[in-house]
């Protein structure tokens, strides 16, 4: 069972990352990159690494969203 879950999560994380990168709107790209972090949290939990999962959840969605959104506010205009 764990092999199937791993395969599905890897496909999901790659698809989310590709959509995030090719997204023309910047806010959507930032939110989708947070989704990549959350899928990585699922992978870390599957790999029996709860410490790394907690760190990635706190950093990737707490402080990381602040940093990306500040960058969006300052240099956001896309031409």
């Amino acid at each position: 069972m764990i092999g199937l879950i791993l395969l599905g999560t890897f496909i999901a994380v790659i698809v989310i990352a590709f959509v995030a990168i090719t997204q023309p709107k910047l806010p959507d790209a930032i939110i989708l990159s947070m989704g990549v972090g959350l899928a990585a949290v699922v992978l870390f939990v599957l790999f029996q690494a709860p410490d790394v999962a907690l760190t990635e959840a706190v950093i990737g969605t707490g402080i990381g969203s602040l940093i990306y959104l500040m960058a969006l506010k300052h240099l956001g205009e896309q031409k």
Binding site: I21, L26, A29, S33, V36, Y68, L75, G76, Q78
Partner: peptide, 15 residues
């Protein structure tokens, strides 16, 4: 080409 996209790509490579 946008610099925020470049930073997001670097973050994905890190992950």
């Amino acid at each position: 080409r946008h610099i925020i996209k470049v930073f997001i790509s670097i973050g994905i490579m890190e992950i």
